[in-house]
Design a protein around this nucleic acid. Structure first.
Lengths: 215, 215
DNA sequence: TAGATTGTTAATCGATTAACAATC
DNA sequence: TAGATTGTTAATCGATTAACAATC
C-alpha cells in the first residue's frame, strides 16, 4: 500500500532565497572564526526582522539554542544540506555564445557544486571540440547525452527564438530544473522547476525608478 | 514656497516587473497585427488573474475602453513611457572579464535604449583601448568620466571582493541606479536604486527544489 | 537564579482576487 | 438595447512582524 505522499509545508519562495543568503553569510562568519550568532545579529546584516530569520529556519527544524543563538558551523551545515549543496550537481549548458561562454568560464559555481559537464550548441563551427575538458556537442542527441551523464539541471543561454525548443529538449532528456537566460517566457511541465533571469526586465526596472526620481 | 512633495502611490515591486512583461508581450502582439486585447487574454498568457492585470495598469492611469479592452499600440506606448523606455539611457559597465564582456557584446539591451557608453576595468592590460567604439578606462577618474557622459546607470561585473568599492565610486560619480552581478550584498545610499542578479542564489534555489523532488 | 534568545502564536500588513457597478 | 469589459471596492490570502512563554 502506497503511503499517502507526505505533504511538505509549503515554504515561501522568499524563504529559500534568504536561506541561500544566510548560508553565504555563515560561511564568511565561520572563516572569521565566529562561533555563534543570534537571529538578531544575522537579521541586522540584511535589514531583516529577527523573527523572520527564526521563522525561515523553523520551516526545516530547530537549529538554535535558547539563550545562546545558533552555532555557526552547525547551522551552515544544516542549511547546506537543506539546499542540496552537500553534493555535486552536473549541469548542461545550452548555447555557447557570449553569455554561455561567460557562464562557463565563470568559476564560482563549480566551487559550490554546480559543474557544467557538457555544452550543447547548434552551430557546427563550435561543436566537436572541448573547452577545458568539457565537450561541446551538437543538438542531435541531447536526450541521450543528458541521460548518460545523469544531468538534472540545464542552463538555457540561447536567443529568445530558440529557447522554448531547447527547453523542450532538456525536459525530454530528463532535466528537472532549468535556469533560463533567454528573454522570453518558457512553458514546462509542472514537475520541472523553471527559474528565469531576465536581464531586460532588470534594466527596465532600473529605468522605471530613474524616471520617477525626478518627479 | 516649495510645494509639499507629491506622494506617489507606492507601486508593488512585482507590478513593475509585470509591467515590463506586459510591454514585451504587447510589442509582439503589435507585430502580429493584433489591435486590441482584454485583460483576460493578457492574463492568460502569463497565468495571471485578469483583475491583477487591470490593477497593475490603474496604478498609472486609465488605459482601457469598457466593452473593448486595451488598444495594443496605445497601451504599449503608455507602458514604455511609464517604464522610461522612450529615451536612451547611457550605461557604465565596470569589469570587463568574462561576464562583463558577455554583457557588453550582448546586443538586445542597446536595442531597448540601454547603451554601454564606457567601460571601466582596473586591469591596465585591458584599458586604454576601445571595443566597438566604446572606451575601456582605468578606475582613476570614474567620477569625472561618468559626469562628463551624464551616466545614471552602472553595471557592476567585478568579483565580490571589489564590488562594494566599485559601487561607492559609481555613487560618488552621480550614478542613481546600479545593476549588481557580484555575489555579495552591496550597501548604497537610499536614493540609489540597487538591483542584484545573484547567479549563485539562482543555482542554489534550483538545487533546493531538486533535493525535495525525491522526497 | 538572572539574563538572553529561541520557537511559536497571534496581530498586522500588503498583495491578490472575486465581484460588480459603470460604461463603451 | 444587449453584450462585453473596464475600473474599483471589498474579501481573501499569505507573508511579515510583535509579543511572549519556554528554556538554555
Amino acid at each position: 500500500m502506497a503511503r499517502p505522499a507526505y505533504r511538505w509545508p509549503k515554504v515561501p519562495e522568499m524563504t529559500i532565497h534568504r536561506l541561500s543568503v544566510y548560508t553565504r553569510c555563515l560561511r564568511e562568519l565561520e572563516e572569521d572564526g565566529v562561533t555563534t550568532i543570534s537571529s538578531q545579529e544575522l537579521a541586522e546584516r540584511f535589514n531583516l526582522n529577527s523573527a523572520q530569520v527564526r521563522k525561515d529556519l523553523t520551516y526545516f527544524g530547530e537549529f538554535g539554542v535558547r539563550g545562546i543563538g545558533y552555532y555557526v558551523t552547525r547551522l551552515r551545515g544544516e542549511l547546506q544540506k537543506i539546499l542540496g549543496l552537500d553534493r555535486e550537481w552536473p549541469v548542461a549548458l545550452v548555447g555557447f555564445g557570449n553569455l554561455g561562454a561567460a557562464l562557463f568560464h565563470h568559476k564560482g559555481f563549480s566551487r559550490q557544486g554546480f559543474k557544467i559537464v557538457v555544452i550543447f550548441d547548434e552551430d557546427p563551427a563550435k561543436t566537436g571540440r572541448e573547452v577545458e575538458g568539457t565537450p561541446i556537442l551538437g543538438m542531435q542527441n541531447v536526450g541521450r547525452e543528458l541521460r548518460a551523464r545523469g544531468i538534472q539541471i540545464g542552463v538555457v543561454a540561447v536567443p529568445a527564438e530558440g529557447a522554448q525548443a531547447v527547453a523542450d529538449q532538456l525536459v525530454a532528456g530528463g532535466v528537472k530544473a532549468i535556469l533560463n537566460f533567454a528573454p522570453t517566457r518558457l512553458r514546462v511541465r509542472r514537475d520541472v522547476r523553471l527559474q528565469s533571469v531576465d536581464l531586460s526586465i532588470e534594466f527596465e526596472t532600473l529605468s522605471f525608478y530613474l524616471t520617477r526620481l525626478g518627479r
